[in-house]
């Protein structure tokens, strides 16, 4: 259970959320929506303990993140960053195996079990044939799938995913969402930053709307994903279309 208590987060002098209280429970899937620059990534980094909060605290099962060793935390909490900011020279399989790093028992290399878990994650992300390719020869979407496979291989209870669907084509978006749905059925908790309201409607049961002025609103997905809320959130007129008994929103321009 990942909990934010009176969390205030700021970056470069801009407050991205004020006294936020939220609890991410096992089996829940949270969607975070907001404009560009609203601070979604910063909030996610704060929830992962990668960005120090200005006030308040984030805790994992009742323990403040700062008091937990990174290695122990990495066994429970997985993060998919938007930009890795690094360069990996090895193969796709070696890259996905890094997800096993917090769990590995030996100083040298990874066990057969680790290899098996990494292979499964590759299959889940439709990458089995690319396993031996150097990671830096992959396309943007393939790389994103490799990054997702790495988080899957980490086998954690709580997943913080920053734009997990970026660069993915429709089939692979669905595949990734299926994989996340499976994690949720197995009792995992998820929080994902999304730009696609449709996916938030279909896959998330809780939604957090992050406004540009630092306000945040969260609640059940059905209550949050209304035209009024979304027009205020994106500061843009929306049109509501009915489709297969549901609603979907498109920009009204």
């Amino acid at each position: 259970m990942l909990q934010a208590h009176k969390l205030t987060v700021a970056i470069g002098g801009k407050v991205v959320c004020r006294e936020l209280d939220m609890v991410i429970r096992p089996g829940q899937c949270w969607g975070v929506l907001g404009q560009n620059g609203a601070g979604k990534t910063t909030l996610l980094r704060a929830l992962a303990g990668l960005h120090p909060p200005q006030a308040g605290e984030v805790s994992w099962n009742g323990m403040t993140l700062q008091t937990i060793a990174r290695r122990d935390l990495a066994c429970h909490l997985g993060v998919l960053p938007q930009n890795e900011g690094g360069e990996f020279w090895g193969s796709v399989l070696e890259y996905v195996l890094l997800g096993r790093f917090p769990h590995r028992a030996s100083w040298f290399g990874y066990s057969a079990g680790d290899h098996m878990i990494a292979q499964q994650a590759l299959v889940q992300m439709d990458l089995a044939e690319l396993a031996q390719r150097p990671l830096n020869t992959l396309s943007g979407g393939e790389r994103q799938r490799a990054a997702i496979a790495q988080v899957l291989a980490q086998q954690v209870q709580c997943h913080l995913l920053d734009e997990p669907l970026q660069h993915l084509d429709l089939r692979h978006q669905a595949q990734a969402m299926q994989a996340f749905g499976k994690l949720r059925e197995e009792g995992g908790a998820l929080l994902m930053v999304l730009h696609d309201i449709l996916w938030a409607q279909r896959c998330c049961d809780r939604v957090l709307l992050q406004f540009a002025d630092g306000r945040a609103l969260h609640g059940a997905a059905g209550e949050m994903l209304t035209r009024e809320h979304l027009e205020a959130l994106y500061q843009c007129p929306l049109r509501e279309l009915a489709a297969e008994g549901g609603r979907c929103f498109v920009p009204g321009v």
Binding site: R45, A48, G49, L50, A69, R70, R71, D72, L73, A74, C75, L77, G78, V79, P81, N83, E84, G85, G86, E87, F88, W89, L98, G99, F101, P102, Q154
Partner: peptide, 13 residues
């Protein structure tokens, strides 16, 4: 080498 955020998320101080 995967970047500071990734490394921290995977358990590196």
């Amino acid at each position: 080498v995967g970047g500071p955020d990734k490394a921290a998320a995977l358990g590196i101080a």
